[in-house]
Deep mutational scan, measured.
Amino acid sequence: QLNAMAHQIQEMFPQVPYHLVLQDLQLTRSVEITTDNILEGRIQVP
């Protein structure tokens, strides 16, 4: 299920590496919260 959620987020934010999306999802278990984390700059994109 997390993989499906990660792919959904990757479609919206292809610039964010998959492993970072998955790592955040493991903590949040939420597409909405992880999306917010990306938008708020809480996930550092190399």
Rank of each mutant, 00 (worst) to 15 (best):
Q26L: 14
P14S: 04
L2S: 03
V45W: 14
V31S: 06
Y18M: 15
A6H: 02
T35F: 07
F13L: 03
L25I: 07
F13K: 02
V16I: 14
I33S: 07
Q15K: 13
M12N: 07
V21I: 15
Q8H: 10
Q44C: 11
N3W: 12
A4F: 11
L27A: 10
T28P: 02
I43F: 07
Q1L: 13
R29C: 14
A6T: 05
V21G: 01
Q23K: 09
E32I: 10
T34W: 02
L39Y: 06
H19V: 08
I43V: 09
Q15I: 06
L39E: 05
A6D: 00
I33T: 09
I33E: 09
E32G: 08
I33C: 08
Y18Q: 14
G41Y: 04
N37A: 04
E11Q: 14
S30W: 02
Q8R: 13
P46K: 10
S30R: 04
N3H: 15
Q10G: 08
R29Q: 12
D36V: 15
Q10W: 15
L25R: 00
I33D: 08
Q44H: 12
I33W: 07
Q26D: 06
R29Y: 10
T28S: 07
V21T: 03
V45Q: 09
L20G: 05
E40D: 08
S30F: 02
Q23A: 14
T28G: 02
I38N: 01
A6W: 05
V31A: 08
I43C: 06
Q44D: 10
Y18K: 14
I33R: 13
P46R: 11
V31L: 10
P17C: 12
I9C: 00
A4K: 12
E40V: 08
S30G: 01
P14A: 04
H7K: 15
T28Q: 02
L27Y: 09
I33Q: 11
T34I: 02
H7V: 10
I43E: 02
Q26C: 13
R42V: 05
E11S: 13
I43R: 02
L39I: 10
V45D: 08
D24K: 00
E32Q: 13
L20T: 07
E40M: 15
V45H: 09
Q10E: 05
E32K: 14
I9K: 01
L27N: 10
L27F: 10
D24P: 05
E11V: 13
I9G: 00
V31Y: 07
D24V: 03
D36L: 15
Q10P: 01
E40C: 14
R42N: 06
N3K: 14
R42Y: 05
P46N: 11
Y18F: 14
N37V: 01
V16K: 00
I43G: 02
P17M: 04
P14N: 04
M12W: 08
I38Y: 03
V45R: 08
I43W: 05
V16L: 11
P46D: 11
R29G: 14
N37K: 06
L2E: 04
Q23F: 09
N37H: 08
Q15P: 01
D24L: 07
V31K: 08
L22W: 09
N37S: 03
Q26A: 10
N3T: 13
Q1G: 12
Q23N: 08
R29W: 13
E32D: 10
Q15Y: 15
